[in-house]
């Protein structure tokens, strides 16, 4: 265990400094067809032991934010044009490649959605986990193998010893995702970013994986950023939620407040469009229209063309992300009215 993670793991001893903070981050993709403004000022943070869910639909910028935090953004076409990503108060975007490399794995680790393409098909699963112990911890081959088998055991892969020398294609989808989790937590990270970790899995397997993640997080007091579009999964595991739309956070709240009384019309629309098991036969309430083209985001509030509450001011002024108290924030000109209705 590194000194860094030992300090982060005691949890309570960090009253002021945030573990990981994203501050007014801006990212654009410069393509042949034009410049797509993918992230337009995203601000969020995660502390030790808490789960922040970043909720959004495809193209909302939730994965690109995560890639920027990890330093795996494809450049070109992606360029960071502003903002900071602070880990233990230090802006990682200003650090050298070598410094950032040291944070990856030990400081911040990531789980990807598609475990089949995230794992290397020509190496055994065991080798890919053990490699980290050899290179980052300087363990011998046999010690590294021992540790890797322990990791496989921790993520509840049956017969871990026998499975060590299997290739990724010999694992089922759920097992591969477990192996990915083993790999990401091997160096005991303080922050774990899980990018749609269960989207490709069946419901019963999804439940197993989310359980496992929750358990590991509690044991290790990791800060977790769960990126997802699934409002059901979020309700089950998140402490706080940040809702993204067109590259901005449009609402932030704790999980109970958000589901009880959303403070942004987009969140409200999303919640309304889930088919509820107890509201059968009624027409689903939809959000009309489509998400904006990121090369041509409408002026004012990006959601205004789809918003049922839109007023002239929404087409002119970009609503700032305003604090509403109790850790709530909303980027809507009419947030107060939304929260105070009935």
């Amino acid at each position: 265990m590194s000194e860094q993670s030992a300090a982060g793991a005691d949890g309570s001893g960090r009253p002021s400094g945030r573990l990981l903070e994203v501050d007014d981050l801006r990212v654009e993709f410069r393509t042949r067809d034009g410049v797509a403004k993918v992230i337009n000022g995203v601000t969020y943070h995660v502390d030790a032991g808490e789960t922040l869910a970043v909720l959004g639909e495809s193209g909302s910028g939730k994965s690109v934010t995560a890639q920027t935090i990890m330093g795996i953004l494809d450049t070109p076409p992606g360029f960071v044009t502003g903002g900071e990503v602070r880990f233990h108060g230090k802006d990682m975007l200003k650090q050298s490649a070598e410094q950032r490399r040291r944070i990856r794995g030990e400081g911040i680790a990531m789980i990807f959605q598609d475990s089949l393409s995230a794992l290397n098909p020509v190496f055994t699963v065991g080798f890919q986990i053990a490699e980290q112990f050899r290179i980052r911890r300087g363990l011998s081959r046999s010690d590294a193998k021992k540790r890797a088998i322990e990791m496989l055991d921790q993520v509840k892969i049956p017969n871990a010893k026998g499975r060590f020398s299997n290739y990724p294609h010999q694992f089922s989808g759920g097992m591969r995702q477990r192996a990915m989790i083993a790999m990401s937590i091997a160096l005991d990270p303080e922050v774990l970013i899980a990018d749609e970790p269960t989207t490709a899995l069946d419901v019963t397997v999804q439940a197993q994986i989310m359980d496992l993640l929750g358990e590991l997080q509690r044991e290790r007091q990791m800060g977790m950023i769960l990126i997802t579009h699934d409002l059901g999964v979020v309700a089950d595991v998140a402490d706080r939620i940040a809702v993204m739309y067109a590259g901005r956070i449009v609402e932030e709240a704790n999980v109970y407040d958000l589901y009880r009384k959303p403070a942004h019309p987009y969140t409200l629309g999303l919640l309304n469009s889930i088919p509820r098991m107890d509201e059968k036969g009624q027409e689903l309430r939809t959000i009309k229209g489509l998400p904006p083209n990121l090369m041509n985001i409408p002026p004012g509030c990006a959601f205004n063309p789809r918003c049922p509450m839109a007023q002239p001011v929404c087409r002119e002024t970009v609503p700032p992300l305003l604090q509403l108290g109790h850790g709530r924030a909303s980027a809507c000109h009419f947030a107060e009215e939304l929260v105070n209705r009935d």
């Binding site: 419901v203 019963t204 999804q206 439940a207 989310m210 699934d230 409002l231 059901g232 999964v233 979020v234 309700a235 089950d236 998140a238 999980v255 109970y256 589901y259 919640l271 889930i274 509820r276």
Partner: peptide
């Protein structure tokens, strides 16, 4: 029982 319910309560 494994279906995630969109309600934290």
């Amino acid at each position: 029982s494994a279906v995630p319910v969109p309600d934290p309560t």
